[in-house]
Amino acid sequence: MALIEIEDLEVTFGSGGRVVQALRNVSLSVCEEESFGIVGESGSGKSTVLRALCGLAPVTGGRMRIAGKAVPSPRDPEFYRRVQMVFQDPYASLHPRHTIDRVLSEPLAIHGFDRREQRVEQALDEVGLGAGFRFRYPHQLSGGQRQRVAIARALILEPSVILLDEPTSALDASIQAEVLNLLDRLRAERGLTYVLVSHDLAVVSHMCDRLVVMQSGEVVEHLTREALKDHVTKNDYTSNLLTASEGFTRDPAPQR
């Protein structure tokens, strides 16, 4: 059974004269313990799908269900315990004046969890940072370490769904590999469901079993990892993306 179902989702920003329709008729479903990818370029609305699911974007139409139940609006605490998100920019997603300890204990305090001390230390251990990082400030950490903290924060409420919004695009290639491996391991250990948004086809095909390609607010193609590997695509835009992601080719490619 599908864990997350999104049907005909529409998101519209602005009001009055300047209206931008960021999403049109987006439908997708994500199974339990699956890793699902959304690929697209800037302005395709790929991040907006995640934000709409979390209640951070104005939904103007369509239905969203999690485990068969409509997503409540405004979101209730139960939703936040089930669904968490990791943001793109590790430099912007941690409060600059809060220690890592505070970043991790605050969600526990909000939801009234017990054994907070142990949970914080355990979360740091799980993302490979260790308790030595607990009382540092974000500016004392590197980008990769910050993203690990962001992942620890998402995990600390023990959710079943993690939304990953370009989790590695701000990181160096070697750090990206470490973070992707970490995400892979955590999913295997905890049976998590991922929805991963990225502009990088290689990252999505590495992480996800199924994916959709988005362009200007619409889903243009549903694909599986195997189809992507064999370049089996019906859509021009997808094949363009595929060619582009393989680097520069000197011989002039066919002009669009």
């Binding site: 590999a177 491996n181 086809l201 290689a202 990252v203 095909s205 590495h206 992507l228 393989e246």
Partner: peptide, 10 residues
């Protein structure tokens, strides 16, 4: 360390 579309090293 780069993931590739064709490769599957994990």
């Amino acid at each position: 360390c780069l993931p590739t579309i064709t490769g599957d090293s994990r």
